[in-house]
Design a protein around this nucleic acid. Structure first.
Lengths: 124, 124
DNA sequence: CTAAACCCTGACGTTGACGTGAAGGTCAAG
DNA sequence: CTTGACCTTCACGTCAACGTCAGGGTTTAG
C-alpha cells in the first residue's frame, strides 16, 4: 500500500510516516515511480512505534527495540547487556511516569469529588 | 524563604520557579530589595505543579486547577461546567496515557522475557 | 575594599516530533 | 490535454518547559 492508505489505517500523518523512515524506524520498499510501498507488517510496526513514542521513548530507543520485536516473536531475551540495561532504565522511567500520572489523576479526582481509589461508593 | 532554598527543597530549578511565576502559577511576595519571598505553602504548591506538569498538563491547565486545590481543602465540586469538562478531558487523557505506558511497558517486558502479566508461564 | 554568595531582569538557545508550505513528478478520469 | 488526487524531496516553522548566558544589583565574610 502507499503512504496515504497507511496513514489512514494507522492514524499517523504522512509526515510522521516519512519521519519514522528518516529516523530508521521503517524501511518501506519503493515502487518504480519512487512511491513508498508498505506491506501489512508495517501497519503493525507503526502502531508499535506510536505506543512506544507516546510512552516517552525517543526515536533512537524505539529504533533499538523494534528489530527485536519486529518478527512477531519475542527475540531478545539474551542480548548485549547495554541494551538490556537501557530497556530496564526505560522501564523504570515508565513506571515512574505511571506513578506521576496516577498521582495527577488523583488530584483531578479529588477536585471533582471522586473517591481516590477503589470502587468504594462516594459517601452518599 | 528565597528562591534558592525553595529550589533545593522542591527539586525545581530556579529558572523553573521563575517560569512558573511568569505563567501565573505562583505569586511570591517580594522583599524590599526585590528578591522573591516564598512561604511554606509555596513548597507544596510547587510539588503539585510538578506532578501535574509531568502528567502532561500544560501550564494553562495547571493554572486553572491550582487555585481550586490551593487552600489545602478540596474546594471545587460544583463549579462552572467548562472547568469540569476540562478536568474530565484531562482525566481521560491521563487514563489513555497510562494505557499507552502500560502497553509500552508490556512490550519492553516481553523483550526481556518477563511474563506479560497474568501468571501464565512463558511457553517453554 | 574585595571576594563570594546570593538575587534580579531580559533574551536567545535547546530538544523532539512532527506541521506546513514550496516546487514539482505521476497517473487515472473525463 | 487537463484537472485533480496522489506522491516525491527539501527545508523552515512550531510549541513547551525550561537551559543558559549577559549584564548588573546586594548582602555577608574577611
Amino acid at each position: 500500500m502507499r503512504i496515504g492508505e497507511l496513514a489512514r489505517r494507522t492514524g499517523a500523518s504522512e509526515r510522521a510516516l516519512r519521519y519514522y523512515e528518516e529516523q530508521g524506524l521503517l524501511s518501506p520498499a519503493r515502487l518504480p515511480n519512487g512511491y513508498r510501498d508498505y506491506d501489512e507488517r508495517c501497519a503493525v510496526t507503526v502502531r508499535r512505534i506510536r505506543i512506544l513514542l507516546s510512552a516517552g521513548l525517543g526515536t533512537a530507543a524505539v529504533a533499538e527495540i523494534l528489530p527485536c520485536v519486529a518478527d512477531d516473536t519475542v527475540v531478545l531475551a539474551g542480548t548485549c547487556p547495554e541494551l538490556r540495561e537501557g530497556l530496564a532504565a526505560e522501564r523504570r522511567r515508565i513506571d515512574a511516569a505511571i506513578g506521576d500520572l496516577t498521582a495527577a489523576r488523583d488530584i483531578l479526582d479529588s477536585l471533582v469529588g471522586r473517591p481516590l481509589y477503589g470502587p468504594a461508593a462516594p459517601a452518599a
